[in-house]
């Protein structure tokens, strides 16, 4: 039992950066922009969050910085694809290469200025980002550990996902936004401000990705700077969007499932079940590829990519 609880807790933690990346990408794809720059935006969030925490010693400042950096990356993408109508795939790949590159350049620059060639977050901020402890609740058996034992990121992520789900499903504005991703011409005719909503969604989505990036360096890596800290999680997040069928609530449990896949290899008894490690690492991508095929074969409209995703909208072309 305690082994299972440990596994679930570890899966949730491993899934949290994915949750942020996935929500951010859902926001992009919902307005019709396939943004392959998640990895880049997460990287930008990582360096900004880290440096802000390093300098200010304050967790809230770090989160804000990570959000702003991710949003800045997304702003470039939005300008290039929304206003200048460039190809989404190419712009996204560029954002990834640019974001990782810039992150490593800045990290390298500050490492060079540090005293002993390493950068570690100060104690005060690390204590703030550690697991929370709710008096009374955290000490409960099982429930306490399963629900009230995580670092603050996880709760932030879940709250964002739920708010986004309410926005998409329960508000008129949310419905309008979804319409942009499905049929921008119809949305335009109905008077939806396409450009404004695209910018808002892409930029906020990028900011959320940035918070996920900060997680990878502050929690996963224990607050010590390394280059390439996001390490491909952004691409798993792009996969996870498909798994979650472009729905924020699914992203919550989906990211925990993918988190479980990431750590599964450490929890399976190697003497009993002998599967090479590489297959565990492959699992998220394999599962996503299979889902992609099944969804397209069954033509489940509800679980498909927003219809206008990847295309640009120019009013005079409709």
């Amino acid at each position: 039992m305690s082994f299972l609880i440990k596994f679930i807790v570890a899966a949730v933690v491993a899934g949290t950066p994915l949750l942020f990346g996935t929500i951010g990408e859902i926001m992009n794809e919902r307005v019709g922009h396939l943004n392959l720059g998640v990895e880049g935006m997460m990287s930008l969030g990582a360096i900004a969050g880290f440096m802000a925490a390093y300098r200010s010693d304050n967790f809230a400042v770090a989160i804000a910085a990570a959000f702003l950096a991710g949003a800045a990356g997304a702003l470039i993408y939005a300008i290039v694809t929304v206003t200048f109508m460039a190809n989404h795939t190419v712009a996204g790949l560029t954002l990834t290469i640019f974001g990782i590159g810039l992150t490593n350049v800045i990290g390298f620059y500050y490492l060079g200025m540090s005293e002993n060639g390493t950068m570690k977050l100060p104690e005060h901020v690390t204590s703030q980002m550690r697991s929370i402890s709710v008096p009374g609740l955290s000490d409960l058996p099982v429930v306490g550990e399963l629900l009230f034992s995580y670092n603050p990121f996880i709760y932030i992520g879940i709250v964002i996902a739920i708010l986004l789900a309410i926005f998409y499903n329960r508000t008129q504005a949310g419905l309008n936004v979804r319409a942009i991703g499905e049929n921008p011409a119809a949305a335009d005719a109905a008077g939806v401000h396409i450009l404004a909503w695209k910018y808002v969604n892409i930029i906020i989505g990028g900011g959320i990705c940035g918070i996920g990036g900060a997680f990878t360096i502050m929690i996963t890596n224990g607050g010590v700077w390394i280059s390439d800290c996001v390490g491909g999680l952004g691409w798993i997040a792009v996969a996870l969007v498909i798994f979650a069928a472009w729905k924020p609530v699914n992203a919550i449990w989906g990211s925990f499932v993918f988190g479980a896949m990431r750590i599964l290899k450490y929890y399976v008894n190697k003497e009993v079940i002998h599967i090479p490690d590489a297959f565990y690492d492959m699992l998220p991508f394999l599962v996503t590829a299979i889902i992609l095929v099944i969804v397209s074969a069954r033509q489940v409209r509800d679980k498909a990519q927003p219809a206008a995703c990847g295309t640009n909208y120019f009013r005079e072309d409709r």
Partner: peptide
């Protein structure tokens, strides 16, 4: 200056 500079410039 980090070699990743080339990625930034390419981007």
């Amino acid at each position: 200056l980090s070699t990743d500079c080339s990625d930034v410039l390419e981007g």
